[in-house]
Amino acid sequence: MSSAPVYNFAYLDEQTKRMIRRAILKAIAVPGYQVPFASREMPMPYGWGTGGVQLTASILGAGDVLKVIDQGADDTTNAVSIRKFFEKTAGVETTSLTGDATIIQTRHRIPEEPLTADQILVYQVPIPEPLRFLEPRETETRQMHALQDYGLMHVKLYEDISRHGHIATTYAYPVKVEARYVMDPSPIPKFDNPKMDMCSALQLFGAGREQRIYALPPYTQVTSLDFEDHPFERTKFEKPCGLCGATGVYLDEIVTDDQGGRLFVCSDTDYCEGRRGHETDGGVL
């Protein structure tokens, strides 16, 4: 492998890391506010977690243990390739065990196992602006955040109720941070929203294409938007996980045959395997 290119530790050059690190500190100081940053071209396409990868690369140290999940799973293409990327460019130890990881990069889920104060959760974010689909102009949304003008978001949720009888948003469900900024929690299921509130771990959000970083320090108040007569409700599942029998966890539907057979199993593969005593190696089928 002597002909392989030699990268700086964790791929990014030091000036890029400094720029991202400065943005991270501002994001922590103003929880929920989206800090612009000069996102770099990464050796993977947009949509594959370039924002999350740049955050991880900027905070990662030689002693860290990295876990990467994609929709809760450690063994999907996106998770495997990002894990391999950091094994190669930073030489860090990687794991699939939530409890062993110091940094967890995630796409669209929060692990079922409660996080600790020693851990950092890095989210990959496609569209960081919660108001973007209501108001396409950045100049306007920026002013709306400055003035706390969030009426439009409540109108959107109200229209959900008038059309469907309940708030039909099930993922990327908007939250309010410390009674100030409305924030997009990234496309996690709304089932995971309550886990963000007063979480012990530092949570960092990175959107590469949209060039934004935002953050939730530990023990930060995160409230899902709702109405007094239509309070926020967490998704409930009628049956337990078909593999480990867990209840109160987020389940994925898996089609098992062409006869209409289906199975509901934990979306968090590490949690499910842990409950089954790690007797299986990876995949559920």
């Binding site: 530790f9 030091e14 890391k17 400094r18 690190r21 991270i24 500190l25 922590i28 100081a29 900027s58 905070i59 990662l60 140290g61 530092l202 953050a215 320090p217 530990p218």
Partner: peptide
């Protein structure tokens, strides 16, 4: 600088 940054980040968080 990574080690110092983590100390700064933890202090800020």
């Amino acid at each position: 600088s990574q080690a110092v940054f983590r100390a700064i980040m933890q202090a800020m968080a």
